[in-house]
Computed example of a mutant assay.
Amino acid sequence: MEPLVAPALILLAVVAGVTLAIRAIGRRKAARIAEPARPAPTPAELARTAAAKLSEEEHRRLYALIAQGQAMAAIKLYYEVSGEGLRASRDAVGALAAHPQPYRTPAADPAAPDDDDDEPQRFPYRYRAIASKGDVTREVSSNMLNDEIYGRIRTLARSGDTEAAANALTRHSDITLKQAREFIELLDD
């Protein structure tokens, strides 16, 4: 009888361990089901949240990199500045590129509408935008353009909305609509 006691105790311990493991897994599943799932933020909300984490200089540098098409450098900059993970930084930069956000001082209301497209503001410097394809090069120089606005114009052009891009370029510079269309054609790849 004694030789069977040790294997019986081992078998009893294994059964008890398996039973406890099954109960723990069941509790986790029940807790996960009971917990309401938070909806993922929309890209526009993600862009607003990401822009709020940047200082004015970081915001300017990030949009300059996006406007120059240097996505990896923009992700690296956001990664270093925000302290978020690499995947979150990639998503944030993608959202910022797709939904450009103006810099807002920390006291600014994030729900305020974006009115800078309606009435262009004049900057104390002249911004030069250059586009070329083959032997053709066009340049637009204006004190109503900056990295952020030009980035929006490039995004519109790349998404296929060339007419809106040309209208935005005309609104933020002193060129005609025909000249703006020629410039946008060179951006469209």
Rank of each mutant, 00 (worst) to 15 (best):
A131F: 00
D115S: 06
G83Q: 03
V136E: 00
D118K: 07
K76T: 15
Q101D: 07
V136W: 00
I75W: 06
F123D: 07
A97C: 02
R104D: 04
D116E: 13
P124I: 06
A107W: 07
E119V: 08
K133S: 01
S89M: 07
P124W: 14
D115L: 12
E84N: 13
K133F: 00
D91A: 11
L96E: 05
E119C: 03
G85M: 04
D118L: 10
I130L: 12
S82C: 10
A131S: 04
A108K: 12
A111Y: 14
R122V: 12
A92Q: 06
V93F: 13
H99V: 09
S82N: 14
G83T: 09
D135A: 04
Y103P: 10
A129G: 08
I130D: 09
A108E: 15
V81R: 09
D117N: 02
P113L: 06
D115K: 04
L96G: 05
L86G: 05
A107P: 04
Y78G: 11
G134F: 00
V81I: 11
Y78D: 13
V81P: 07
D116W: 14
P110R: 06
R87D: 14
I130Y: 01
L86T: 14
E80L: 08
Y103K: 01
A131V: 00
T105I: 01
I130H: 02
P113G: 07
A92T: 04
F123Q: 12
L86K: 08
P110L: 04
R104Q: 13
A107S: 13
R138L: 05
T105N: 06
P113R: 10
R126V: 15
A107L: 08
D114L: 14
E84Q: 11
T105S: 09
D117G: 03
A88C: 04
R90E: 15
R138Q: 12
S132K: 00
D116K: 01
D109P: 10
R90A: 14
S132H: 01
Q101G: 05
D135H: 03
G85C: 09
S132C: 01
Q101K: 03
V136P: 00
L96R: 02
V93N: 08
F123C: 02
A131W: 00
D135R: 04
A131P: 04
R128H: 08
P124C: 06
K76G: 06
D116G: 04
L77T: 09
Y125C: 01
Y127S: 13
V93H: 08
T137H: 00
A108L: 05
P100V: 11
S89R: 10
G94F: 03
R128N: 07
D115E: 11
I130W: 02
T137G: 00
A98R: 14
G85L: 09
P110G: 09
A111M: 12
D115Q: 05
P120I: 12
D115V: 13
P120S: 07
G85A: 09
P120K: 01
A112R: 06
H99D: 12
R90D: 15
P102Y: 05
A111R: 15
A98P: 08
A107D: 15
R138Y: 02
R126E: 15
A112Y: 11
A92Y: 07
